[in-house]
């Protein structure tokens, strides 16, 4: 009885929602209030300044001047460089694996095991996992001990930790699964007959890959890039623990600014990153316009 009521309720809710006439507008209104308005407020703050834990209402470019003078903008650039570089690496690594997992893996049991193994780490705190790498890669850690025992080096290798290399290394494993999942999801949906058709039409394997499979996977690739790059940009644990404070990224730099309740600087840091991302996207559009480039991407998303 109760069950019928519930399912009836779900049904009528769904039927109304399915029309889509009010769903999206209603969502956009709520989203604007909850997200866009606060962000806009914060952006306004970047034209104010703080004095002793208080924001002073005196519009100026002071914050932005200091932003460039103190080299804080390099934090934004470094963040983008590492996030974009690492995302490209993950894409190269994850794309073949995700395809294999979706289509090439013979055993359903193995597939279930691999997906489980990829999911579990998300539940566990990243900092406790990362601090362990420090012990393993440090100058007296296991890796260096083994290297020295084997006579490969006489001195401990010091760049294994507290360098940009170690930040990349520390990011590789935690952000692999975020790239695999969306591509895997999309790849499972690819109709095998497309491949058949492609072969019948005389395409070689490479042509099939780039002309059939990659375009069909594009929505997943785009989602994967977002899933991977976005959290990496705000990454808070790995740059500090693996970079040892020497690789200053936006997460910690924002924290430093906020420790003096300096909202304007925190705002300018984010605004700067957003501006550069928009500029990159625009440049990409221009560069690839002739080939349908970014527009093609959006076409793939049916956008």
């Amino acid at each position: 009885m109760a069950n019928a009521l519930v399912s009836g309720g779900v049904r009528s809710w769904y039927t109304r929602a399915a029309s889509g006439r009010w769903t999206v507008p209603a969502f956009i209104i709520v989203w604007t209030v909850v997200v866009i308005v606060p962000l806009f407020l914060l952006l306004l703050y970047s034209f104010l300044e703080t004095k002793g834990f208080k924001v002073v209402w005196d519009p100026s470019f002071h914050t932005w001047d200091r932003f460039f003078e103190t080299g804080r903008w390099t934090v934004a650039m470094r963040t983008l460089r590492i996030a974009i570089g690492m995302t490209v690496i993950e894409l190269v690594l994850a794309f073949p694996f995700a395809l294999w997992l979706a289509k090439g893996c013979r055993s359903q049991g193995l597939k279930a095991i691999l997906l489980t193994l990829l999911t579990i780490p998300f539940f566990l705190d990243l900092s406790s996992r990362t601090i362990i790498w420090r012990a393993l890669l440090g100058s007296n850690g296991v890796v260096n001990t083994v290297l020295m025992e084997l006579g490969i080096t006489s001195e401990p290798v010091e760049w294994l930790i507290f360098t940009e290399f170690s930040v990349f290394f520390g990011l590789a494993a935690p952000y692999f699964a975020t790239m695999v999942f969306p591509i895997f999801l999309v790849a499972t949906l690819i109709d095998d007959e497309y491949l058949d058709a492609s072969r019948d039409l005389g395409a070689n394997p490479l042509q099939t890959l780039f002309l059939v499979i990659v375009p069909l996977c594009l929505p997943g690739v785009i989602a994967g890039v977002v899933f991977t790059m976005v959290p990496m940009m705000g990454e808070w644990v790995v740059p500090q623990l693996m970079g040892g404070g020497k690789v200053n990224m936006i997460g910690r730099s924002t924290e430093d600014a906020l420790s003096t309740l300096n909202y304007p600087t925190a705002a300018s840091l984010s605004a700067f990153v957003l501006a550069i991302l928009v500029a990159l996207l625009a440049a990409l559009t221009l560069l690839t316009r002739r080939r349908g480039g970014v527009a093609g991407l959006f076409e793939a998303l049916k956008l």
Partner: peptide, 17 residues
């Protein structure tokens, strides 16, 4: 301290150098 922002920003310069 009275000039927190200045101190924090100078330290930021140090971290980024």
């Amino acid at each position: 301290p009275d000039h927190q922002e200045a101190m924090e920003e100078e330290w930021q310069r140090f971290l980024n150098a």
